[in-house]
Computed example of a mutant assay.
Amino acid sequence: MSIWAFEATIDEINAMAGGSMIAQLGIEVTELTDTSLKGRMPVDSRTTQPAGVLHGGASVALAETLASWAGYLAVDRTKFHVVGQEINANHIRPVAAGAWVFAEVTPAAIGRRSHVWEVRITNEDGKLVCISRCTLAVIEMESGYAPEDRRGPARGASRDQG
């Protein structure tokens, strides 16, 4: 039995990432199962630290991206929007530039007003690189997730900025 509130394709999800940090970092959703979401990110000049290995912040960005997509898929998007509330990460091992990291997000708890998602990031050999837990708040309002060409100004942002 699926945990998702509606059906979406990987292509639809990845298309919505255009024009965002997700696309800038090269993060892609690769698989959607009944109980998890999987993705990957390149370890390259966009995601490494000056020492030439995966930046911990890039791992956190990958983790929060997948957790947020999972939250989006798990609620009625016509009534609810999810936002990151808290995230933690334990960095286990480095990954050198030129490789890929892979992530899988699974639910720890899916409630009416908050979700907790666990994200495991591994290297190409399947060894654990980072483990993260992300808490999402579920807000009663239509989801703001949209493709780049249908996005408006950020909610609460001044129209005079930027």
Results as ranks from 00 to 15, higher is better:
155 R>E: 13
27 I>T: 03
91 H>F: 11
162 G>A: 09
81 H>K: 06
12 E>F: 10
12 E>L: 08
144 G>W: 06
140 E>P: 01
162 G>K: 06
93 R>T: 10
13 I>Y: 06
85 Q>T: 06
155 R>C: 06
155 R>W: 13
25 L>V: 00
150 R>C: 06
108 A>Y: 12
162 G>D: 11
12 E>C: 07
70 A>C: 07
153 P>Y: 09
155 R>M: 13
76 D>Y: 09
154 A>Y: 07
34 D>H: 13
48 T>M: 11
41 M>H: 02
55 H>W: 10
145 Y>E: 12
32 L>I: 14
10 I>W: 02
57 G>P: 04
117 W>A: 03
85 Q>C: 04
158 S>A: 11
85 Q>F: 12
90 N>T: 14
128 L>T: 13
40 R>Q: 14
68 S>C: 09
158 S>K: 11
11 D>F: 05
94 P>S: 04
124 E>I: 00
77 R>I: 15
100 W>F: 12
115 H>E: 02
68 S>R: 09
118 E>V: 15
156 G>P: 05
49 Q>V: 01
44 D>F: 05
55 H>Y: 14
128 L>I: 08
160 D>T: 12
103 A>V: 02
54 L>H: 00
139 I>A: 11
57 G>R: 00
34 D>I: 08
111 G>F: 09
44 D>I: 03
36 S>A: 15
161 Q>D: 15
56 G>A: 12
73 L>V: 10
76 D>C: 11
59 S>N: 06
158 S>R: 13
72 Y>W: 15
120 R>I: 11
14 N>C: 07
54 L>F: 05
67 A>V: 05
142 E>Y: 03
79 K>N: 13
57 G>M: 01
99 A>T: 04
90 N>S: 15
19 G>K: 08
76 D>H: 11
158 S>F: 06
3 I>K: 03
124 E>F: 01
42 P>Q: 08
4 W>F: 10
44 D>T: 05
83 V>L: 15
89 A>C: 10
120 R>Q: 13
126 G>P: 03
82 V>H: 04
56 G>D: 09
4 W>N: 05
124 E>M: 03
42 P>Y: 06
53 V>C: 01
145 Y>H: 10
132 S>Y: 00
79 K>H: 12
116 V>T: 12
157 A>M: 13
67 A>E: 03
14 N>A: 08
6 F>I: 00
45 S>H: 15
121 I>T: 02
68 S>Y: 06
136 L>G: 08
78 T>G: 00
35 T>N: 11
103 A>I: 03
155 R>I: 15
77 R>D: 14
135 T>A: 11
123 N>D: 15
119 V>M: 07
50 P>K: 04
80 F>G: 02
77 R>A: 15
146 A>H: 10
29 V>D: 07
34 D>K: 13
130 C>M: 04
53 V>F: 05
20 S>W: 07
92 I>K: 11
